[in-house]
Every structure is written in structure tokens, then in C-alpha cells.
Amino acid sequence: MTTISKFVRAASLGLALASGLSAAVASTYPDRPVTLVVPFTAGGMTDVLTRQLSRRMQDELKQPAVVENRVGAGGIIGAERVAKSRPDGHTLLITTTAHVVNPAITKQLPYDTEKDFVPVALLARTPNVLVVHPSVPAKNLQELIAFAKKSGGVSYGSSGTGGTTHLSGELLAARTGAPFLHVPYKGTALAVNDVLGGQIHAAFVDALTAVKYVESQKLRAIAVSTAQRNPSLPDVPTIAEQGVPGYETEIWIGLYAPRGTPPAIVQQLNRIAIGAMSEPAFKETLASQGTAPGTMDAVAFAAYVKREIAKWQAIVRDARIEPQ
């Protein structure tokens, strides 16, 4: 037998063994509780979707699905926890668009966003909504920009540094020259509380959270961040149609596993996730709050994540944000 033949045979044997081990792991999955790591505080969009997923997982997997809020550093601390976990499907990450933004705004991540995670499923997507306290003398974007320039600045809250709610404001400031002053929070709920209390002027908030406050007139919606208006807020114009052409951002929530997680487990989790988001009553609730459930398989979601990383690198560059 030639050296090349021996090498090919050894490689084939290695692949077969690896495949066999993966199949063995998948066949007994899960054999203990599954931990869903959420790198933000409870009460926001990510937490709402995670609670829904955990209920569905427990029903189908017959094991507890425990939600762990590991807060800090714009989602990096929670992501690192999952990246360094065993790739057996028992520790998973549920996080926002911040996950694909962080490579563009952070000089040294403790993991590789593309190489250390397996994208499993897109859970849901929704526009960012620019909301203000009713005392702010602005009913549209141009009035808000004029107020910001006249008063010396408008403070806006976000769910944390580096997320789309933060960068939506930075991009708007860069495109308009208006002094929007960022105030980061450890989650959407905390940012909304301070707008409601009048401690800050405004916030970029996901539609799932924003709609109920807008409908109750506790907050005023100035604009949505997507290219088209949102069906749940049909009277709220986009930022683009209010004088900032080409402006578009969106928030979405994704489910990830550590690199090396067996494909069979990834496919199983993708099926459960899509099923959880598509439960009729929950889907109807999402739709009423301007949010669409994900439907991609794992392969399509992986390609989507790759495109989003490149997209946000361009947005960060356009907004002239220096990596920290």
C-alpha cells in the first residue's frame, strides 16, 4: 500500500469514527438539562422569545430548558460562555444582531464569531422604532433633529453598546449631523423605563417592545428603521422617507451552538425553534407587535449570518465608529 493510500484510508477511518461519535451523541441527546444563555436582562425581546423556545424545548426534549441571563459587554460575556462550552447541544446562545455587529466594533473578542459558533435558527426579526417621551417637542424626525440641534443634543437609550439599537442612533447622527447622545443600558427594558420616566429623551427599541407603549400613548413613535413601514405601526414613517435616503437597520434574534455540535442536533434544534416561533397564538402575538418569526433552515441561517457580518462592518464604517 502506498503512502498516499495509507493517508486516505486513515483519513476515511477518522471521518467515519467522528461521524459515528456524532451520531452516538445525537442519539442520546439531551441527557441532562439544556441551558439557554441570554446575554441581556430579562424583559426584552430576546428574553420573550427565549421563554417561548424553552417551553417548546421542554415539551419535545423531555428535559428542563433553563434560561440563564449572563449580562454584560454588549452580549460578549454570554457569547464567550457558550463558545467555551462542550459542543453537545446542552449549552446554547440566544442573542441579538449585536452578535454579528461585535466583530466590527470590538478590537479583541475572546472568540471568533464565525468560527466558534454554529448558527442554528433565526427566531424572529423586527424593526427598531425610534420613540420619544411625550414631553419632547417633536412629532416627526425633522422636528426631532431640529430640537436636538437647538437644545444641544437629544439623549437616546439602547439595549447596550454595539447592538442595532445603539448603532441605529449612531448611523442617524452620522447621516444627519444631529447631536444624538448615546446612553447604553443592560437591556431594552431598562432603557424603556428611563424614557418613560423622562430621564432620557428617546430610545431605539424593537417593535415587539415598542408597540404597546405607542398604542397606550405612553411613548410617541417618530420613525421605524426598516426600508418599509411596519404593519403594526402603519402611520409611523420610515427614517428613509423622512429625509435620510438609504437608511435601514433591523434587529433579529438568533439561536447558536458551540462549534463542533453534531449536525443532527443542530437540525433537531432548528426544527424545534421554528416550531416554537410558529405556534399559532404566539405567531399572532408577534405579528400584532410588528415582529415576524424565522423560517430558515440551519444552512440558510448560516449563510444569512455571514452576510449580516459583512453588512454591519459596512454600516459601522459608514457611521465612522472606531473599534474599541
Rank of each mutant, 00 (worst) to 15 (best):
A173F: 02
G152A: 12
K115A: 13
L144A: 05
T113C: 01
L196P: 11
L130P: 04
G152N: 09
T209E: 13
E170C: 05
L167W: 00
A178T: 08
A189G: 07
V154C: 01
A210R: 13
T164L: 08
H182L: 14
A210S: 12
V131Y: 00
V120K: 00
A207G: 12
S155Q: 13
P184G: 14
K150M: 09
F147H: 07
T188I: 13
P179W: 06
T113R: 01
T113G: 00
T165W: 02
V183Q: 04
A189F: 11
Y185I: 07
G187P: 07
G162P: 02
V192I: 15
G152H: 08
A121F: 13
V120P: 03
R175A: 13
L190T: 07
V118Q: 10
A173D: 05
H201N: 14
G162W: 02
L144V: 10
P137D: 15
P179S: 08
P137R: 13
P127L: 08
G157F: 10
H201D: 14
V136E: 09
R125S: 15
E143A: 12
A178W: 10
S158H: 01
H133N: 15
G197C: 03
L109A: 10
N140P: 06
V129F: 11
N193A: 15
L190H: 06
L141G: 03
N140K: 03
K150T: 14
D112R: 04
I145H: 02
A174W: 01
A210W: 06
A202N: 00
S151P: 03
A210N: 11
G177I: 06
T164Y: 01
Y156H: 08
A146S: 04
E114F: 04
A173E: 06
T188D: 09
A146N: 05
L141V: 05
L144H: 08
S135L: 11
V192S: 09
P127H: 05
P184E: 15
D206P: 13
K149S: 10
S158V: 06
H133Y: 11
G198H: 07
V129L: 13
F204D: 07
T126F: 08
G160F: 01
K149R: 12
A146M: 01
F180W: 03
P179F: 05
